[in-house]
Amino acid sequence: MSTVAFFVLSLVKCLIVLFILLTAVAYIQLAERKIVGRMQSRVGPTRVGPFGLLQPAADAVKFILKEDVTPDGAHKFLYILAPILAVVLALLSITVIPIGGTVTVFGIQTALQLTDINVGLLLILGVTSLGVYGVVLAGWSSNSKYSLLGALRGGSQMISYELALGLALIGPIMLAGTLSLRGIVEAQAHLHWFIVPEIVAFFIYLTAAFAETNRIPFDLPEAEGELGAGYHTEYSAMKFAMFFLAEYVNMITVSCVATLVFLGGWMGPLFGPTWLHMVLPTVYFIVKVCFFLFLYIWVRGTLPRFRYDQLMAFGWKVLVPLALANVMVTSLVVALR
């Protein structure tokens, strides 16, 4: 393939992924309001469009038209940088996520993935670890005590749970023998999903992932009862929307990684004509990811918030030792196999 063709193909793929991602974010947010509404015996948004389906568009218009306030005494450069950083980092990790096998579209064979690098999982962990900066800088540069407290909570929470998150992924990595996400999925062919041997790691990952994305029951950085809105208290209009976007994109990324590493990615029973063989893997992948996203919403409608000291104690005294023990047991099994 020539260089120009490569760039054009990459650009087209990037735009498609971006479009799908942003649409998905808009509708996950609508689904969340609807589902949580049902759980609380309400109906959720219904007025804009049929069944409220145009609500995300209305929200977007509102975000754009609202006044953009910069508080007095804010560190302007960092205040503007923080939401940009949050969104860029959130979007960056989606580049290595494969959503299916290889397909042939209009005679061009392409993998359903923006880029397949050998250390894809490490890239995601690296980007996750940088995600703290968005939160911390936003809180500090706002020059507000609620923001600062939210940022401190968020920062220490994300650093603590990152450790358990990374350690939980080591078990499946050892079983697959590769850091490439595509390789990890291919190691789970024929229904040998890693959730079976790595059930402990799966639950550690799930818990840590909820904490990494600052979602209930670990949403202390934005505990509205105590902190206003936490680190993004002072943000309004599009800047707030960017934090919002970053949070939901992170949710999608985390769900994709859980699907790829533990639930066999796009693997599943194939049947029917040839065209179905091409479509089915991606359908399986999307269904599995949607399951995790629903879990997020379900948990939000069900569980109360942790207390801060409980959160820290749980992370360091339960999750990290458990994850370390899991790594030791798995390495023993891999060594003896």
Binding site: L122, L130, G155
Partner: peptide, 19 residues
């Protein structure tokens, strides 16, 4: 590893202390 350890862990602690 450079990104995860230095930018993601060590420098975050620096920024934290400064804050």
């Amino acid at each position: 590893i450079q990104v995860i350890v230095y930018a993601g862990a060590i420098m975050v602690l620096f920024v934290f202390v400064i804050m």
